[in-house]
Protein backbone atom coordinates (compact mmCIF):
# COMPACT_ATOMS: atom_id res chain seq x y z
CA UNK A 1 0.00 0.00 0.00
CA UNK A 2 1.40 3.38 -1.00
CA UNK A 3 -0.05 6.87 -0.94
CA UNK A 4 0.47 9.45 -3.63
CA UNK A 5 -0.10 13.18 -3.22
CA UNK A 6 -1.88 13.82 -6.47
CA UNK A 7 -1.33 17.58 -6.34
CA UNK A 8 2.45 17.25 -5.99
CA UNK A 9 2.84 13.87 -7.72
CA UNK A 10 4.99 12.76 -4.75
CA UNK A 11 4.82 9.59 -2.73
CA UNK A 12 3.66 10.28 0.82
CA UNK A 13 5.85 8.98 3.62
CA UNK A 14 4.78 7.20 6.79
CA UNK A 15 4.85 9.46 9.82
CA UNK A 16 3.17 7.86 12.78
CA UNK A 17 0.79 5.14 13.85
CA UNK A 18 -1.82 5.27 16.57
CA UNK A 19 -3.61 2.34 18.16
CA UNK A 20 -6.48 3.75 20.23
CA UNK A 21 -7.28 0.39 21.79
CA UNK A 22 -10.68 -0.15 20.21
CA UNK A 23 -9.35 -2.48 17.56
CA UNK A 24 -8.89 0.27 15.00
CA UNK A 25 -5.67 1.79 13.75
CA UNK A 26 -4.67 5.17 12.36
CA UNK A 27 -1.58 5.56 10.21
CA UNK A 28 -0.53 9.05 9.23
CA UNK A 29 1.28 9.73 5.97
CA UNK A 30 2.67 13.08 4.86
CA UNK A 31 3.61 14.56 1.51
CA UNK A 32 7.29 15.51 1.66
CA UNK A 33 6.71 18.43 -0.69
CA UNK A 34 3.54 20.24 0.40
CA UNK A 35 3.51 18.61 3.87
CA UNK A 36 -0.17 17.84 3.63
CA UNK A 37 -0.91 14.86 5.81
CA UNK A 38 -3.61 12.25 5.65
CA UNK A 39 -4.64 9.45 7.99
CA UNK A 40 -5.46 5.96 6.88
CA UNK A 41 -8.03 4.52 9.26
CA UNK A 42 -8.62 0.80 9.43
CA UNK A 43 -11.57 -0.95 11.00
CA UNK A 44 -11.03 -3.80 13.53
CA UNK A 45 -11.19 -6.49 10.84
CA UNK A 46 -8.63 -4.77 8.63
CA UNK A 47 -6.38 -4.10 11.63
CA UNK A 48 -6.58 -7.72 12.75
CA UNK A 49 -5.89 -8.99 9.26
CA UNK A 50 -2.62 -7.05 9.03
CA UNK A 51 -1.68 -7.93 12.61
CA UNK A 52 -2.20 -11.64 11.98
CA UNK A 53 0.51 -11.50 9.33
CA UNK A 54 2.97 -10.24 11.95
CA UNK A 55 3.60 -7.01 10.06
CA UNK A 56 2.95 -3.35 10.80
CA UNK A 57 1.50 -0.66 8.59
CA UNK A 58 4.28 1.83 7.97
CA UNK A 59 6.98 -0.61 9.06
CA UNK A 60 8.50 -1.51 12.40
CA UNK A 61 9.19 1.46 14.67
CA UNK A 62 11.09 -0.70 17.18
CA UNK A 63 12.75 -4.07 16.55
CA UNK A 64 10.49 -7.08 16.88
CA UNK A 65 10.53 -9.18 20.03
CA UNK A 66 10.49 -12.95 20.45
CA UNK A 67 7.06 -14.56 20.13
CA UNK A 68 5.53 -11.16 19.48
CA UNK A 69 2.68 -12.58 17.43
CA UNK A 70 1.96 -15.31 19.95
CA UNK A 71 2.14 -13.00 22.95
CA UNK A 72 -0.01 -10.29 21.46
CA UNK A 73 -2.40 -12.72 19.78
CA UNK A 74 -3.00 -15.45 22.36
CA UNK A 75 -5.52 -14.56 25.06
CA UNK A 76 -5.18 -17.76 27.10
CA UNK A 77 -1.45 -17.55 27.79
CA UNK A 78 -0.03 -18.75 31.10
CA UNK A 79 0.98 -15.90 33.35
CA UNK A 80 4.36 -17.33 34.28
CA UNK A 81 5.21 -18.65 30.84
CA UNK A 82 8.32 -16.50 30.48
CA UNK A 83 11.08 -15.41 32.79
CA UNK A 84 13.81 -12.96 31.95
CA UNK A 85 17.33 -14.31 31.65
CA UNK A 86 19.77 -13.48 34.42
CA UNK A 87 21.53 -11.24 31.92
CA UNK A 88 19.23 -8.31 31.18
CA UNK A 89 17.63 -8.32 27.75
CA UNK A 90 18.90 -4.85 26.95
CA UNK A 91 21.93 -2.83 27.95
CA UNK A 92 22.43 0.07 30.27
CA UNK A 93 19.00 1.70 30.37
CA UNK A 94 17.97 2.22 34.00
CA UNK A 95 14.45 1.79 35.33
CA UNK A 96 13.15 3.84 38.24
CA UNK A 97 11.40 2.06 41.07
CA UNK A 98 8.07 3.54 39.98
CA UNK A 99 8.59 2.38 36.41
CA UNK A 100 9.50 -1.14 37.56
CA UNK A 101 6.42 -1.20 39.77
CA UNK A 102 4.25 -0.13 36.87
CA UNK A 103 5.82 -2.72 34.59
CA UNK A 104 5.01 -5.38 37.18
CA UNK A 105 1.31 -4.82 36.48
CA UNK A 106 1.76 -5.92 32.87
CA UNK A 107 0.79 -9.60 32.53
CA UNK A 108 3.97 -11.62 32.57
CA UNK A 109 2.97 -13.37 29.33
CA UNK A 110 3.83 -10.11 27.52
CA UNK A 111 5.99 -8.35 30.14
CA UNK A 112 9.36 -9.25 28.65
CA UNK A 113 8.21 -8.10 25.24
CA UNK A 114 6.87 -4.81 26.60
CA UNK A 115 10.06 -4.20 28.58
CA UNK A 116 12.15 -4.71 25.48
CA UNK A 117 10.00 -2.25 23.54
CA UNK A 118 10.50 0.43 26.22
CA UNK A 119 14.24 -0.25 26.35
CA UNK A 120 14.52 0.06 22.59
CA UNK A 121 12.53 3.28 22.66
CA UNK A 122 14.82 4.71 25.34
CA UNK A 123 17.93 3.74 23.41
CA UNK A 124 16.64 5.27 20.19
CA UNK A 125 15.81 8.53 21.93
CA UNK A 126 18.98 8.76 24.00
CA UNK A 127 17.06 8.29 27.26
CA UNK A 128 19.14 6.87 30.11
CA UNK A 129 16.37 6.28 32.62
CA UNK A 130 12.86 4.98 32.13
CA UNK A 131 10.23 6.62 34.29
CA UNK A 132 6.43 6.35 34.21
CA UNK A 133 6.39 9.59 32.22
CA UNK A 134 8.73 8.08 29.63
CA UNK A 135 6.51 5.01 29.50
CA UNK A 136 3.53 7.26 28.79
CA UNK A 137 5.43 9.05 26.06
CA UNK A 138 6.56 5.78 24.47
CA UNK A 139 3.04 4.38 24.57
CA UNK A 140 1.75 7.44 22.78
CA UNK A 141 4.60 7.64 20.27
CA UNK A 142 4.56 3.95 19.46
CA UNK A 143 0.83 3.44 19.50
CA UNK A 144 0.95 1.03 22.46
CA UNK A 145 -2.17 2.28 24.18
CA UNK A 146 -3.29 -1.28 24.81
CA UNK A 147 -0.02 -2.28 26.58
Amino acid sequence: MKFLCVECDRQMTFEEREVPGDGTLAAVFRCPKCERSMAMLTNPMETQLVSSLGVKVGGETVPGTSFEGIRTGVSSGRDEAFVEAATPIQGPVRWTVDAVERLSHVPSFVRGMVKKIYNEYAKEHGIGEITPAIMDRARSDLGLEDM
Binding site: D22, M45, Q48, S52, R78
Partner: peptide, 30 residues
Protein backbone atom coordinates in the same frame (compact mmCIF):
# COMPACT_ATOMS: atom_id res chain seq x y z
CA UNK B 1 1.53 -26.45 25.98
CA UNK B 2 4.44 -24.59 27.60
CA UNK B 3 2.67 -21.28 27.08
CA UNK B 4 -0.81 -22.15 28.31
CA UNK B 5 -2.28 -23.06 31.67
CA UNK B 6 -2.74 -26.84 32.06
CA UNK B 7 -6.08 -27.99 30.64
CA UNK B 8 -6.58 -24.64 28.93
CA UNK B 9 -7.24 -24.43 25.22
CA UNK B 10 -5.55 -22.08 22.81
CA UNK B 11 -7.67 -18.95 22.44
CA UNK B 12 -6.79 -16.01 20.26
CA UNK B 13 -7.47 -12.41 21.09
CA UNK B 14 -9.98 -11.20 18.53
CA UNK B 15 -10.61 -7.53 18.34
CA UNK B 16 -13.23 -8.15 15.73
CA UNK B 17 -15.73 -10.78 14.72
CA UNK B 18 -14.99 -13.40 12.11
CA UNK B 19 -11.65 -14.40 13.63
CA UNK B 20 -11.68 -17.49 11.44
CA UNK B 21 -10.71 -15.26 8.53
CA UNK B 22 -7.20 -14.73 9.86
CA UNK B 23 -6.90 -17.70 12.23
CA UNK B 24 -4.84 -19.56 9.64
CA UNK B 25 -2.43 -16.63 9.33
CA UNK B 26 -2.07 -16.43 13.11
CA UNK B 27 -1.30 -20.13 13.37
CA UNK B 28 1.18 -19.91 10.54
CA UNK B 29 2.76 -16.98 12.38
CA UNK B 30 3.01 -19.04 15.57
Amino acid sequence: ALLLEPDTGLAWRDSADAGFVWRGAQERGA
